[in-house]
């Protein structure tokens, strides 16, 4: 397995990982979660969503999972659920650490502080 990618994750990818940090979800639930969290500022079209999922799967950050709760009906059962892999957790933590470092540094600047409260 190649080493975890060092380059920074895009905002939407980060959001997808965050959504999965709450537990396994299927694709459309991820999208809803992301859009809700970002209060509508991030919108994931079907293509964008699965393009990201494909990359995350290929990079080994997420994997298919059985749902946390049993499916309510047949259609649900057919959907694919995704969860964070160990690698996914690692990368997400590292990424968040980096981000929070950036924010901390920004807070040190009085001219930026207001917007970051």
């Amino acid at each position: 397995m190649p080493p975890p990618p060092r380059k920074t994750l895009s905002l939407s990818v980060l959001n997808i990982l965050l959504a999965l940090a709450d537990g396994a979800k299927h694709g459309y639930a991820i999208k809803q979660d992301v859009e809700e969290r970002s209060e509508g500022t991030i919108r994931l079209g079907p293509g964008t969503l699965y393009e990201a999922i494909q990359r995350l799967e290929d990079d080994g950050l997420i994997a298919e999972a059985s749902p946390d709760e049993p499916a309510a009906n047949g259609q649900e059962a057919q959907r694919r659920f995704y969860r964070l892999t160990e690698r996914g957790w690692t990368v997400l933590r590292r990424e968040l650490k980096q981000l929070s470092d950036v924010v901390d540094r920004a807070r040190a600047n009085p001219r930026l502080r207001k917007g970051l409260a």
Partner: peptide, 21 residues
């Protein structure tokens, strides 16, 4: 318009997301 590998892998899921949206 997607590469066939992509639709084979996610076609059904894309449709779910489409009708959801």
């Amino acid at each position: 318009v997607y590469p066939a590998t992509f639709t084979r892998r996610y076609g059904a899921e894309l449709e779910v997301a489409f009708s959801g949206a």
